[in-house]
Design a protein around this nucleic acid. Sequence first.
DNA 1: ATGTCC
Length: 470
Amino acid sequence: MSELKMTGKQLRALGYPQGPVISTAIDVIAQHYATATAEEIETVLAKVLADPAAYTEDAVWAEVATALIPEERPEIIPLREQAVDYAIFGSDAIEEGAVRQLNNAVRLPVAVAGALMPDAHQGYGLPIGGVLATENAVIPYGVGVDIGCRMCLSILDLPVDSLTTKAGEYEKALKNKTKFGAGAEWKRNDDDAVLERNEFREIQILRSLQAKAAGQLGTSGSGNHFVEWGVVTITDAGNEWGLAPGDYVAVLSHSGSRGLGAQVAGHYTRLAKELCVLPKDAQHLAWLDLNTEAGQEYWLAMNLAGDYASACHHLIHKRLIAEMGATMLARVENHHNFAWKEMHHGKELIVHRKGATPAGKGVLGIIPGSMTAPGFIVRGKGETTSLHSASHGAGRQMSRTKAIASITNEEMRKMLQDNGVTLIGGGLDEAPGAYKDIHTVMAAQADLVEVVGQFQPKMVRMADGGPAED
DNA sequence: ATGTCC
């Protein structure tokens, strides 16, 4: 069912060189040759390859032709000798690789400030749990592959004991109204204003992604993404919604911008790495200058992917709430993979949070625990040294591979049973034991957020165990 | 993270 008319492998078989031209050509084919035959595509590809100079002004093939003509690589931009000093929260439990990655990031010439959250672990480019503020520059890998990955919690008016007495109905709703798995799409789907956004017409890479985004709206993907029913316990009597302290049924979801964001991230990361060549151990931190067309395009596409991720959560919640005949009493939501324009140190900075929760003063957010440990509704304290940020969860203490190798199905089953949690889907790689203790993580960020309430998972749906995350 | 392209 792929819309791709040509794969990277086929392009290389035609003589196209290994490198960014492959993906550029794939983009062009997807956008301009959707109805062409393989023969027609191969013919034009051969012509462009044979004489790229003849196509450098071509309306369709200019970018591919230009990429085929050898050019001098831009100079390698050195990192600064002097690093920006930054704060680490909960450093006892943070792996060395994550610190090393942020040490690199704060030596970028565009870096102004950084911080490392207590759930930090090694990622790609910026560590997960890393916060980096830059001046007028955005780093696609500082946002991450899943642009706008976020949390959404809806507190409902359903009686708490119904989670037990009507467990079958909750389970049926989760099974019927959520969809998981890489590439998952709804056959018949609701519409949403985000799908009509101008960016889908004005930005080339987005044109070919609109149809898939429409199908994937309201789906959850794979990896550590979940939708779950549980019990919220409000502990702060001064909460923003005027809710009486006590227990409520709630739905909590964690997912991002699906294929749309992944494609945007991939495209602009490749572009950034072409335009901004850094030393090898920092190459993934390539940035786009916000005064350039590429930088402005990424900013718009990133924001669209963020709004799309939000719309996905809202649709999931809307369907589940309708299915249960409930009314929403309150909602908390936040991105934790994103970049924002914010004022810090008296100037406007681009703050990248890659697996970090915004925690400006009075800003509400959700920090999940694990499928058996509680998550927390938090209110930011606006701490300067964390760049108004907190952790985005408990953080992994085991890689997926290690979790699968060292945790048994029996241990996982017992853990779920002991905590009264029903799991639909999921795998050992997401077992509670693969995560740090959320209470230790929360203690390490007591200066960053205050707790408004907590969420205890009762019925969790995830994709069936699968490949790599973060 | 993503139906795995560089």
